[in-house]
Each structure stands twice: as structure tokens, then as C-alpha cells.
Write a protein that binds this DNA or RNA. Structure first.
Length: 884
RNA sequence: GCAGGAUUAGCUCAGUGGUAGAGCGGCAGAUUUACAUUCUGUUGGUCGGGGGUUCAAAUCCCUCAUCCUGCACCA
């Protein structure tokens, strides 16, 4: 046993233990074990990702669950891995290429993909190293990647299976198009944000009634060349008569008049009140307009290229311009034509691409869609609690989404991803395509679909396709899933459906949704705001354990978390405190390797702390049941710091420093017992420091089978202490001593007596056992001498305080301000009188006495008695002062 | 527009029917040998407003206000 240093230095300790755990294979479970299984699959971070505080929160919770399950004797699998993250990863490599003035098209598909794999090998998975630094107990031997050969095959097979079931189809539809990434997006990948825009009012002439014009309001004048109709509500008296006539579309201006005529149609979709009640219909560039167009058989005129640059159909004024430049150009042209009537400020919602953060463009294109499988079964599973959501309110959000579920656009016009396993015949283009896991045998006659699948189409298989047969037999369905509510639709809902569809079982029993971490001003953490601290910096400053513990204490169940570095500092301080508590114990000689309370003569303080330890264990157990990690953290913090360090250790010093070997041994054994228990309770939260202290305090080693705490399958259970009345009496006594200590310290502070200065105290006791506890009381109040004097006359000049043990006096040399002393006591009397009045008022209320439970009434009576007694004593003390 | 969440001490937040709490901050003090990443004492709240249910409400119900988050959207 080496000496413990004064301050805890986490870096070396944490790295040492993590390496050790890996070496010992502590995180690799045995599927053949007959221990009950516990499993979690990690939400696979993007392979391009770096650790954020969100990951820290998420993975710390998973680690806590996994480590506790191990200590409860389960066979634990925490399966890690990364996601290939289609757009994000392709972006990273394309950005690199752009620096060399190249695009992926210069390289070609094959060369480009080679480059992405190279990038992945070199830079990918940084986040895995960071998770290790955090202390995550994942089974790295089972680490998976969503584009591993086997996994890819499973993704392809899933596609083929759903295709054969008729659930996957190809369609020419309006989709969300990302003009930067040049791909379609699913509805979930579009983020609606309010944007300050302008509503432009412009006129169109009625062809059949020259001189008559209609005014139209639009936010997108640049799409006028794509307008193929003007719509009004058929019930709108202002405009109904124009239905069937034609309007002259102002753009492109250069076209001959007959090519600019577009029909005026009637459609219920048009609102009377909005704008002017006249709507321009652009079927190629607006989802709602597309539907109107479909209803009326309107032509679809696409005026943009895939990159949202206007094409020649937009006319000479706009062609070649980006859509936003084109808007300005269109405005200028309309003004020039005296068609522009007015412009007004207007705020409306615009959809942005989740990945590239630019406005999506509704675009008609050929895409693959999935009609979701197992929808009803999946909705029901959450409804019945077969899959339990925590907090439960997310179930309603899920239910709503499931009830309004829309087909999923699963194709992406990217290169990085799982290529769609569909081949088209070169020989007979009208033949049905070949769809299969294996390419067609006569490959040269076929051409594979160029699209890849949405990343989430692979992620939704994660809980089972990451496992081989033996692993799956033991660990699937998984136990807990821990994730953020932001991917409820993207991932959680889809996994449930995939689970039921492909394995006929739920993928997990519980889903715990964490909160979102926000900055001090309540804003989301984001790269662009630069308000997201680097967790690795925090680990360097405060240690991984400090970060974990600090974060867990401020992470209430399912509520957003306002991040404050101070909290992490507290986590570090807590680790340091733990370190020093161990250090203190070690300074008093070697401890027991297996602490036992058998045959121990316990002081009342020892009995008290053990009873509190028992309630702590019970409380922690309950909190785990409800996934209330902040509550567990708070309980552990409070017990260890306030109850154990501040009170028990200080009180026990009486025994430790006294010359009574038996009492000393008893106190030290109780410390051993508490630390032995506490290290285990804390281990899931702070794995490194607890492991280190476990060894330093001599708890590790041959006595415990596997020597490491991480494999110590014995999560604490309550002691065999005598329960009930005996311990309650002892605890009441200890509480009285501690309250008396506080009262005495208060007196010292009032009279500016430095806590280091020894002074005399006199106790006029009201309890029979006062004398027994004088040594400890005396020590804790730093008394020169503490005497019990039942008949102390209490001269007027002596400061006094009422304590649960009796009246306490602090005779001081020199004059004491009696008036001030009297004032102080009077203030206390006023407080007690108010309390007494409150409780008496309640007891005088007949309906309270009649209706409240007997125990509550009894408790109020007791309260009344206690306050009355206290008031009597305070009054006597005030009278003894002789002040009016 | 619909749904959900939040509103408690200066700050960040616990507290879901029975005596309003913690940490930080502030103030006053302490180097008492585990720890200044410490210790002691103290200050500070009509629990967002209003109404209701109840013997009893921060807690349950209604309503209003403000903020946040989803979802749906009218160009």
C-alpha cells in the first residue's frame, strides 16, 4: 500500500485503469454464460464525429447502467460502433477535394469511394478514442461500423426483402432537395425555421379582358417562369368569374404572348384572406402547388438545375443565376414592367437541410420510397409498455408520428453509402429491374441504380445486425436504449419497426430519453455558435470522473440541462474529497480487506452513519429503478460529503485519537465498511477513482475473486443492523448532539470567537445521557472545557443558546452586550412563537383533527409539544438575562 | 394552429398532498495535522398571476401570462 498523495491527480490514474480493464478483457461478455443478460447498443456516433457534451451525457448514462448491471451479477454487453453518416462523411472528403480544386466527379465513383475509405481509416473513429477516455465500458472487440461487409449485406437484404413484400417502390414525386449536397432528403431531415422574408405583390393581366389585372402575392417571384396556372377559390365572389380565362405570365418576358398565357383555375385550396386571394401555381417548385397541378392536369415546368441555378426555361433575365440572385433579378424585371405593386415584410417558415443548413428546394424527381412495415404492432408496443419510454410523455409524441406516418424517401443521390441493389437491363430497358442481394449473374448486361440508401436505412437495423448468432441468442432484445429525443423519429421509431419486421421481436425493453444540453443562456450547443465546450478539455481540467459526476448531478430526468462549468468543477472537488477521505483512513493504519460489522461495539455515531448508509442504499436502488441519475448523484454527494465527512469522520476522531484501542478499531472498521460500500455505489459514476481507491485501501485482491472493482459482482445491499426503535433512538441522540454543536458554533460566530480558539462551555442539560457524549460534543465545538452543570445560575452577562441537549452557555471574559444578547433570544422566540401559532391553528381546526390521518394529527401534536417546550425554555433564558 | 415542457433563493436547479431544500454566489470568520479542489456560521423565497378542489396545495384541477421544444402550415 503506497502513500496517498494530498491532491487527487486524475490523468494518470484514469488512463492506467482504462488500459488495465481492456487488458483484462473486463468489458467482453461471454454469450455462453448462464448469468442473466443485460445489453445496450450504443447510438452509433458519426464516424466523422468528435465527442460533444451530448455524447458525454448519453454515454455516461449507458456506462452507469452497464457497470451497475455488471456489479449486480449480469452478463453485460455494451455494443459500440460508428455510423457511416452518408452526407456528413461525403461532405468532409469533398471539402478536402475542393481545396485541390476538384470535385468527386473528377475522380469518378470508384476512386472517390477509395478516398473516403482512406479518410475513414486515417481520421474516422476519433470519437471512439474519446469514448475510451471517458471510461466507457464498451465491448470494443465487438465494435461495428454500418458499412462493414456483413452489415452492408444485411442492409441490402432488408431492402430486397421489403421490395419483394411490395413495401419499397420507386416513384416520381415531390421531394425535399438539398441543392448543395445534390440529394433528396427525408421529411425528418428538413428543419423548419422562421425566416424574415418579403411578400411581393405583382399584377398579371387578364388575356380575355385587356386592361383588367389580378394582383398576386408571392414570396418567390423567381419561380414565376415556372407558373402554369393562376388559382382562385371558386367560392370567392371577387374572382370566380375569371375562372376559365387566362392570365399573361410576366416572366420570361421575351416569350411571345401566346406562350405566356396560363389558365385561371378554381381550387378550394386557395384561402380568401391570405395575400390577395389569388395564387400563382408552380407545380415544379412547391409541394402544395404540385398537388393543385395534379388535380388540374397542369404541366410541370422545372426552371432550375439540381444546384438551384435557374435554367434556360427561366428566361434570359434569370437563366444562369442562383435562385436567390434570380429573385432579385425577377423583382427588378417586374418593377421595370410596372407589374410590381408593393412589397411587405413577412415572416414565414422555411425548410433547411439538416446537414448543409441551406434552404431545401422542393423538387420533382425519381426516388425510392418505403411504406413502413409493422406500423400497427410498433405503435401498440409502446402504447402497452412492451417498449417502455422514459419519460413517458415521449410516447405521445411517438404515437402522433406513427399515426400520421408518411412513406419514407430512402434514396440519396450520394456515393458514400449502401448502393441500392437494383439493376436495370441494358438490353431491354422496359423489362422490370433485377433486385437482389447478389448482382445479376450476367452483370455486363445490367446497370446498377446509382443512388445509395439513406444512412438511417442502415441504422434502423443496428440492435440486431450488429450481433452474430450466439451474441444475439444471449443479448437480443436489448435491455436499455439511451438516446436523445431529437432522434425519436429518425432512429428509435424506425428501429422498433425494423425489430418487429425482421426479428419479430422488440429491439429493446426500455428507452431512456436524455435531455438536451444547453449553454448558460439556454441556447442549443452548436458548432457555429462556438458555445460547446470540448469535453476533452474538461477531462484534462477536471478528470473524466469529475466530468461524469458533475454532469450527472445536473441531468434531471428528461429535462434539458443548462450547462455550467462550475458543476464540473464540483465533480472534480468531489473526487478530491473522496481521495482525501481515503487518505485520512489510510493514515490510521491498514484496514480490513473485507470489512465486517460482526461483533463490533458501535458508538452511537457509528450506528447512525451505518443507518444512513442503509437508507442511502435503499434510496439509490429506488432512483435506479426510475432512471433518476441526478437523484443518485445528489444522494451519494450528500451522504458522503455532509453526513460522512462533515459529521461522522469528525465525530469519530474522538474515538480514533482517544487511547482506547477497542473504540478506535471499531471506528476504523466502520470507516472501512462505509468506504467499501460507498466505492461500490460510486463506481458506476466514477469508475476510475473508485477502482484506484479500492486497490489502495486494500479491498482488491485474492479475497474477491476477480480483484478489480469493475468485476466485483456485489452491488451493495443493506447492512444487517438492528432496525426499528433502537436505532431510531440512537439516531435521535446523534441528531441532538449535532444540533447542539451547530448551536454552539453559532454562538461562537455571534461573538466573533475564532473557530480555532478554545473556549469554555457550560451545559445545563435536559437529557439524561448528556454526560456520555461530552467528549465528542466538546471536540466538535473546540471547547477548552465543557462542563455539565444542572444548577448553573446563568448570570446575565453570559451568552446562551438553547440546544436539544439543554441550555448551553459560553462564559466569556470581558463585558458582553446583554441588550444584544436579549435581542438575539427574542428573535428566536419570535420564530418559535410563529411556528407554534401555525401548528396550534391547525390543531384547533376541528375538520383537520377529524379528517387528517391519525398519524399526521399525532405528528402535529408532537410538534406542538416540542415548540411549546422550546418556547418555555427560551423565555426563561431571556428572563434570566434581566433585560426588559 | 395543435401538442408537450418550463416558470421555486441573486444564479443553476431538486422537491407531485402534510414544518419550502441543495450547490454556487453574497456576507462574516477560520490554516483546529485528510482535504483551501477545505472548514464553520450566516444572508436570502407571499414556489409566474388569478381562481378552484381539499382538513391541508410548490405539488391536483381550471384559466391567463411569458419562455422553450416538437408537429402541421397560407402562396
Amino acid at each position: 500500500m503506497t502513500e496517498i498523495s494530498k491532491a487527487y491527480e486524475p490523468q494518470a490514474v484514469e488512463e492506467k485503469w482504462y488500459a488495465h480493464w481492456l487488458e483484462e478483457g473486463c468489458f467482453t461478455p461471454d454469450p455462453a454464460s448462464d448469468k442473466p443478460a443485460y445489453s445496450i447498443v450504443i447510438p452509433p456516433p458519426n464516424v466523422t464525429g468528435v465527442l460533444t457534451l451530448g455524447h458525454v451525457l448519453n454515454n455516461t448514462i449507458q456506462d452507469i447502467l452497464a457497470r451497475r448491471a455488471r456489479m449486480l451479477g449480469r452478463e453485460v454487453l455494451w455494443l459500440p460502433g460508428t455510423d457511416h453518416a452518408g452526407i456528413a462523411t461525403q461532405n468532409v472528403v469533398e471539402r478536402q477535394l475542393r481545396k485541390e480544386k476538384k470535385t468527386r466527379h473528377d475522380l469518378g465513383r470508384e476512386e472517390f469511394l477509395k478516398l473516403v475509405w482512406e479518410w475513414k481509416a486515417k481520421h474516422g473513429g476519433i470519437i471512439i478514442q474519446q469514448l475510451k477516455r471517458l471510461g466507457c465500458s464498451c465491448d470494443w472487440s465487438r465494435e461495428r461500423f454500418t458499412m462493414d461487409a456483413g452489415y452492408s449485406r444485411a442492409v441490402t437484404a432488408a431492402f430486397v426483402d421489403l421490395y419483394k413484400k411490395g413495401l419499397i417502390y420507386r416513384g416520381n414525386r415531390m421531394v425535399n432537395w438539398d441543392p448543395l449536397a445534390l440529394t433528396a432528403l427525408s421529411d425528418e431531415e428538413v428543419i423548419m425555421r422562421p425566416e424574415k422574408g418579403v411578400l411581393y405583390y405583382f399584377t398579371v393581366e387578364i388575356a380575355e379582358e385587356p386592361g383588367t389585372a389580378l394582383t398576386i402575392a408571392t414570396t418567390r417571384p423567381e419561380t414565376i417562369p415556372g407558373d402554369t396556372a393562376i388559382a382562385v377559390n371558386p367560392n370567392d365572389g371577387r374572382y370566380a368569374r375569371f375562372i376559365g380565362m387566362h392570365a399573361v405570365r410576366p416572366l420570361p418576358h421575351e416569350l411571345p404572348r401566346e406562350q405566356k398565357l396560363i389558365p385561371i383555375i378554381g381550387d378550394d385550396h386557395v384561402e380568401f384572406e391570405f395575400g390577395t386571394g389569388v395564387l400563382k401555381v408552380t407545380p415544379a417548385h412547391d409541394k402544395a402547388d404540385f398537388e393543385i397541378g395534379a388535380r388540374h392536369g397542369l404541366p410541370v415546368v422545372d426552371i432550375m438545375n439540381p444546384d438551384a441555378v435557374m435554367n434556360e426555361r427561366a428566361g434570359q433575365d434569370l437563366a444562369g443565376l442562383d435562385r436567390f440572385e434570380a429573385r432579385e433579378a425577377a423583382i427588378r424585371k417586374l418593377e421595370e414592367l410596372r407589374s410590381m405593386v408593393k412589397q411587405e415584410a413577412y415572416e414565414h417558415n422555411v425548410g433547411f437541410s439538416e446537414r448543409t443548413n441551406i434552404p431545401v428546394e422542393p423538387r420533382l424527381s425519381d426516388q425510392w420510397f418505403l411504406k413502413y412495415p409493422a406500423v400497427e404492432k410498433s405503435a401498440e408496443a409502446v402504447r402497452t409498455g412492451e417498449v417502455a419510454f422514459r419519460p413517458a410523455r415521449w410516447a405521445a409524441v411517438y404515437e402522433h408520428w406513427m399515426a400520421n406516418i408518411q412513406d419514407w424517401c430512402i434514396s440519396r443521390q450520394l456515393w458514400w453509402g449502401h448502393r441500392i441493389p437494383v439493376w436495370y437491363s441494358k438490353l431491354e430497358p422496359n423489362d422490370p429491374p433485377y433486385v437482389g442481394v447478389e448482382p445479376p449473374p450476367d452483370m455486363e448486361n445490367w446497370e446498377q441504380d446509382t443512388d445509395v440508401l439513406d444512412t438511417w436505412f442502415s441504422s434502423w437495423l443496428w440492435p440486431f445486425e450488429t450481433m452474430d448468432d450466439a451474441t444475439r441468442a444471449k443479448f437480443y432484445p436489448t435491455t436499455d436504449l439511451v438516446t436523445g429525443p431529437d432522434i425519436l423519429f429518425f432512429w428509435v421509431a424506425r428501429m422498433i419497426m425494423a425489430g418487429f419486421e425482421f426479428t419479430a421481436r422488440k429491439p429493446f425493453a426500455n428507452v431512456f430519453f436524455t435531455g438536451l444540453i444547453r449553454d448558460g443562456q439556454g441556447r442549443k450547443m452548436s458548432k457555429s455558435l462556438g458555445n460547446s465546450p470540448d469535453p476533452l478539455d474538461l477531462i484534462a481540467k477536471y478528470g473524466a470522473d469529475g466530468l461524469r459526476f458533475g454532469l450527472m448531478r445536473i441531468a434531471p430526468q428528461g429535462q434539458d440541462i443548462r450547462f455550467d462549468e462550475k458543476q464540473i468543477e464540483e465533480g472534480r472537488n468531489f473526487a478530491n474529497k473522496l481521495w482525501n477521505a481515503a487518505r485520512f483512513r489510510q493514515m490510521h493504519g491498514p484496514g480490513a480487506s473485507v470489512p465486517s460489522l460482526d461483533g463490533l461495539k458501535l458508538s452511537c455515531y457509528s450506528a447512525d452513519i451505518l443507518a444512513r448508509l442503509d437508507s442511502l442504499i435503499e434510496q439509490v436502488g429506488k432512483s435506479y429503478e426510475e432512471y433518476r441519475f441526478n437523484e443518485i448523484g445528489a444522494s451519494l454527494y450528500e451522504f458522503f460529503w455532509s453526513q460522512y465527512c462533515d459529521w461522522y469522520v469528525e465525530a469519530a476522531k474522538t474515538e480514533i485519537f482517544a487511547d482506547q484501542p477497542e473504540a478506535k478499531a471499531s471506528a476504523l472498521m466502520v470507516m472501512d465498511y462505509v468506504l467499501w460500500t460507498l466505492l461500490r455505489l460510486l463506481h458506476p459514476f466514477m469508475p476510475h477513482i473508485t477502482e484506484e481507491l479500492w486497490e489502495r485501501l486494500g479491498f482488491a485482491g485474492p479475497n474477491h475473486g476477480a480483484g478489480n472493482l469493475v468485476m466485483f459482482a456485489d452491488f451493495p445491499v443493506k447492512t444487517a443492523l438492528p432496525a426499528g426503535g433502537v436505532i431510531a433512538t440512537v439516531q435521535a441522540q446523534v441528531a441532538a448532539v449535532y444540533a447542539s454543536v451547530t448551536a454552539a458554533r453559532n454562538l461562537r460566530a455571534e461573538y466573533r470567537v475564532a473557530s480555532s480558539k478554545k473556549v469554555n462551555f457550560i451545559l445545563k442539560p435536559t437529557v439524561t445521557w448528556a454526560a456520555d457524549e461530552l467528549p465528542t460534543l466538546s471536540r466538535l465545538v473546540n471547547a477548552e472545557e465543557l462542563t455539565v452543570e444542572p444548577n448553573y445560575p446563568a448570570p446575565a452577562g453570559v451568552p446562551r443558546a438553547l440546544t436539544p441537549m439543554g441550555e448551553l452557555y459560553m462564559p466569556l471574559e470581558g463585558a458582553v452586550d446583554t441588550a444584544a444578547e436579549s435581542e438575539r433570544i427574542k428573535k428566536e422566540i419570535a420564530k418559535v412563537e410563529a411556528e407554534l401559532a401555525t401548528v396550534r391553528k391547525k390543531l384547533e381546526n376541528q375538520s383537520f383533527v377529524a379528517n387528517a390521518p391519525a398519524a399526521v394529527v399525532q405528528e402535529h401534536r408532537q410538534r406542538e409539544t416540542d415548540w411549546a417546550a422550546k418556547l418555555g425554555q427560551l423565555t426563561r433564558m431571556r428572563d434570566a438575562l434581566g433585560e426588559p
